[in-house]
Design a protein around this nucleic acid. Structure first.
Length: 707
RNA sequence: GCGCCCGUAGCUCAAUUGGAUAGAGCAUCGGACUUCGGAUCCGAGGGUUGGGGGUUCGAAUCCCUCCGGGCGUGCCA
């Protein structure tokens, strides 16, 4: 397996160059570069291991921040596994590594502990020197990568014809965060919103426009009217489908009941207890299935009844009995180049895009390009032709399929009616991306239910590229062969009932109304807090609104980003805007509080940052806080190792905020016992605020000066 | 049926990808303090990491098996 952990790149500066000069302050400002400490240490270990004849980068992953402060600041664990390989006792191996390790400019004498752990403790002077540099560094110590990658990031990807809903949150928010982190680290990243602007939903709008248009409404608010048309047609189509489906469901129910009865008597008749148990289990499963089917039938019946109870809807349904078919025809006409449908499509698009843009503006999300499905139309037929010609795909039951040995189901790239699919567009899109950007990686931020699709897509794309390479090694598509293709998958947002998040009526929740609700909730919290201030409220209604917007939207984003990407999580306004715990609200509040200290202290932060005052890390709390600040670069870099934003939120909360509060409790700042100590502590405050701000910014979350 | 993912404290989630004594926040209980912004801090209880077996110096993490759940699975995206 290829590890994505970045190897310390390039020749390292000789440790000698950093060694303390006799008689001089060893860490004069100009002598120390800002660094990702972890990577720097890994580089040092790489050198030591090379001296022992080992150059496997895997060992370097075993250099990690120490889990327990008793073990120092960093620890290296490679001596134990290496001992097995070398056939020598692990402690001896550890000693040998230490012998070759040159870290005396950064660390105190390394210790070998336990079965063979190498524990490292940073030298206080080094910590102070690094912090001094941080004061004036706009990047807060985060270095740019030495080898920038070109990365295409595919995220958000809503359908333009229908309003965005809760299902789009995770892709948009995680994608945006990854975009920001890539950019900040110096990668060349292309944010691409692969919108659905060419599918069946457009057929629905076209059909709706031709039959149900409210012209006045359309003139006044085209987006709203189009959304209304979409919902109306969608409802009528569903109604028809449900009507067709109901008999089939009932038949299934009958069959299932029959099987159940059969199994029941079979179970009764079985003597063998083991066999009986097995049958019982089958019985249980069958009963569960039946239960589910009952529910499904009930839901379907309810949906049908709802339409029929509405005289207007029922009338429309009667007038448009073949609506499902007609919608597909409208879509097909659009694809075939029908003049009117193309004209309408062009007419609708700007309004649809503007509606999306409004939400993105509110979320603070940006893209470099928005190339929807329609953009790749001309490529679809040639792609399929080429796949057939190269023997990657073949015809089967009238459709064109790619059969992969490792997958049981084929990837279908052309339906038997000649239409192209999602998979076809994805292949064409990859081809285009290779031609235009020749990226080192293409990342798809898409929910986990599509993992099979992406496995098939990636395998097919590679096979395709390989066949192309055999004929035409210069073809841009061959770049695909050493391009990372990753499905950055994520779990489902659940309601408090543990089921996918929906309204009480069972509809999906619109994104915009969700944001409104969050902001309202935030406004209540902000107002309550402002009213309760000992010196009286200090925010105007306007300011409260602005703060609430930052708090509400920040809360939604942070809740999403702070959870492990692959797991499902429960959506709850209370939890995400809790003022204690790992939330955006807490982090924003911590920031505002620190800024308030600086304000009340009448501190000129510019002067503070540029001053040469010494930093005094006398207490344990100050020292720990300083170390936490120095670890920001590691936390940022780690996000991209496995595309995990929650590693950054973990850092902000557990590492930084925790150590800051400990410091804040124990170390008076404005009332510090001496002026130099006061200034030193103000520097720590300022740095903490800046790291919080930058960290939240990388998550796409705003900070406010007062709240 | 087959495939993928998951199961961690009463609840919601972490655990630097195999490291030392599995951590936070809610909730519960007990403390602190004349607010540098109390939206605070400190402490306690709470765990056979779904069960069992295996791999090795070392397992929540890897392998096997069973139990329980989610998702997907030939013409949607």
């Amino acid at each position: 397996m290829i590890s994505r952990i970045a190897c310390p790149a390039g020749p390292l500066r000789s440790p000698k160059a950093l060694a303390p000069r006799p008689g001089g302050f060893p860490f004069a400002k100009q002598g120390v570069a800002l660094m990702n400490l972890l990577e720097e240490l890994r580089g040092r270990f790489a050198a030591a291991l090379r001296a022992l004849g080992e150059d496997d980068a895997r060992w370097l992953e075993q250099v990690v921040p120490a889990k327990d402060p008793r073990f120092g600041h960093y620890q290296a664990n490679m001596a134990m596994p290496l001992a097995g390989k070398l056939g020598r006792p692990p402690r001896e191996v550890a000693q040998q590594i230490v012998h070759h390790l040159q870290v005396d400019d950064l660390c105190q004498e390394p210790e070998v502990a336990g079965p063979g752990f190498i524990n490292l403790r940073l030298r206080p002077e080094f910590v102070v020197a690094q912090l001094q540099r941080l004061k004036t560094d706009p990047r807060l110590g985060v270095p740019r990568v030495s080898k920038p990658r070109t990365v295409v990031l595919d995220y958000s990807s809503p359908n333009v014809a229908k309003p965005m809903h809760v299902g789009h949150i995770r892709s948009t928010v995680i994608g945006d965060c990854l975009y920001r982190v890539h950019k900040f680290l110096g990668h060349h990243v292309i944010g691409d919103n692969h919108i659905g602007d060419w599918g069946t939903q457009f057929g629905m709008i076209l059909y709706g426009y031709k039959h149900f248009l409210d012209a006045d409404h359309y003139r006044q608010n085209p987006v709203e009217e189009l959304a209304r048309l979409y919902r109306l047609v969608n409802r009528l189509v569903s109604y028809r489908q449900q009507q067709e489906e109901l008999p089939r469901l009932r038949q299934q129910q009958g069959e299932l009941r029959g099987r159940l009865a059969q199994l029941e008597s079979q179970t009764e008749a079985t003597e063998d207890p083991k066999q009986r148990k097995k049958l019982r289990r089958q019985l249980q499963r069958l009963q569960a299935q039946l239960q589910e089917l009952h529910q499904q039938i009930a839901d379907t019946e309810a949906a049908i009844a709802q339409v029929e109870a509405d005289p207007q809807l029922a009338e429309l349904a009667r007038q448009h009995p073949d609506i499902a078919q007609r919608v597909l025809e409208e879509t097909a006409k659009l694809h075939a180049g029908d003049e009117e449908n193309r004209r309408l499509w062009r007419e609708f698009m700007p309004a649809c895009l503007e509606a999306l843009e409004r939400i993105y503006r509110r979320l603070g999300v940006q893209f470099d390009v928005t190339l929807g499905e329609s953009f790749y139309q001309d490529r679809l037929a040639p792609v399929v032709e080429q796949l057939l010609e190269l023997g990657v795909a073949q015809e089967s039951e009238g459709a064109v399929c790619v059969f992969l040995p490792e997958e049981s189901a084929p990837l279908i790239v052309r339906k038997k009616d000649g239409a192209f699919l999602y998979a076809t567009t994805d292949l064409a899109t990859l081809q285009y991306r290779m031609e235009r950007w020749a990226p080192d990686a293409v990342l798809y931020v898409v929910d986990h239910r599509q993992s099979l699709h992406f496995r098939q897509l990636f395998a097919t794309a590679r096979l395709w590229a390989k066949r192309v390479q055999e004929r035409d090694p210069e073809n841009p598509l061959t770049k695909l062969l050493d391009c990372e293709l990753t499905h950055v998958s994520f779990g489902t947002i659940l309601g408090s009932d543990g089921k996918p998040f929906r309204t009480r009526a069972g509809d999906t929740v619109g994104l915009e109304s969700l944001l409104d609700e969050a902001v309202e909730h935030a406004l209540r919290i902000v107002s309550r807090n402002d009213d309760a201030k000992p010196t009286g409220p200090e925010l105007s209604p306007e300011q409260r609104r602005r703060v609430a917007e930052a708090v509400g939207i920040g809360a939604i984003k942070y809740a999403d980003l702070s959870h492990h990407r692959t797991s499902d999580y429960v959506f709850s306004f209370e939890k995400m805007m809790s003022t204690t715990g790992n939330t955006a609200t807490y982090m924003q509040y911590a920031y505002a509080r620190i800024r308030s200290i600086l304000r009340r202290g009448g501190v000129d932060v510019e002067a503070l940052r540029s001053s040469e005052d010494p930093l005094l890390l006398e207490s344990e709390q100050e020292h720990r806080l300083a170390l936490a600040l120095l670890r920001f670069p590691e936390a940022v870099a780690e996000v991209l190792v496995d595309y995990r934003p929650n590693l950054l939120t973990n850092y902000l909360f557990e590492e930084l905020a925790t150590h800051f509060t400990a410091f804040y409790e124990q170390c008076p700042v404005l009332k510090a016992p001496s002026d130099p100590l006061r200034r030193s502590r103000l520097v720590l405050c300022d740095l903490t605020a800046r790291v919080i701000q930058k960290g939240l910014e990388l998550l796409g979350i705003q900070t406010v000066e007062q709240m």
